[in-house]
Computed example of a mutant assay.
Amino acid sequence: MSSKEWREWHLTPNGWVAGTLQHDSGRNQISSPDNKVLTCIYKETIAPDAMALSGYGEPGFNQSSNVSIIWRCSNHQLISELLDKFGSCPERI
């Protein structure tokens, strides 16, 4: 069985702020900051590999991840400046 987890990240004038987190055990809902200019979601999936599913050998796991923009304000210049200052969306839960 695979594990699918994600976290929202909000870019603000103060940097990246962690938002809502989805774990296998449930969701930790966090309000987004009022001063956000961009919201991304970082997703991570961890699944057993073929060896783990076959029952032979040491089980291993395959991990994949991706980042998607789910909201942005209309001030593209500000977004660009803040991305230059703070970097791209964090790739971590």
Score class of each variant (00 low, 15 high):
2 S>H: 10
3 S>M: 11
3 S>W: 01
4 K>V: 12
4 K>Y: 12
7 R>K: 14
7 R>W: 00
9 W>P: 05
10 H>V: 00
10 H>K: 05
11 L>M: 02
12 T>Y: 06
12 T>C: 03
12 T>F: 07
13 P>A: 00
13 P>F: 02
13 P>N: 04
14 N>C: 07
16 W>Q: 11
17 V>I: 14
19 G>V: 10
20 T>Q: 13
20 T>P: 00
24 D>V: 15
25 S>L: 13
25 S>G: 15
25 S>P: 01
27 R>N: 09
28 N>D: 14
29 Q>C: 02
30 I>E: 02
31 S>N: 14
32 S>G: 11
32 S>E: 12
33 P>W: 05
34 D>E: 15
35 N>K: 00
35 N>V: 01
35 N>D: 15
35 N>L: 09
36 K>G: 01
37 V>P: 03
38 L>D: 00
39 T>S: 03
40 C>Y: 02
41 I>P: 06
41 I>W: 05
41 I>Q: 01
43 K>R: 13
44 E>K: 08
45 T>M: 04
45 T>Y: 01
45 T>N: 08
46 I>N: 08
47 A>F: 08
48 P>A: 08
50 A>C: 11
53 L>Q: 12
55 G>P: 01
55 G>D: 02
58 E>V: 15
61 F>P: 03
61 F>W: 12
62 N>H: 11
62 N>S: 13
64 S>H: 05
67 V>C: 01
69 I>A: 10
70 I>H: 06
73 C>S: 15
76 H>I: 14
76 H>C: 13
76 H>A: 14
77 Q>V: 15
78 L>V: 07
79 I>K: 03
79 I>V: 15
79 I>W: 09
81 E>Q: 14
83 L>Q: 07
85 K>F: 01
85 K>C: 09
86 F>R: 03
88 S>T: 14
89 C>E: 00
89 C>V: 06
89 C>G: 06
91 E>A: 08
92 R>A: 10
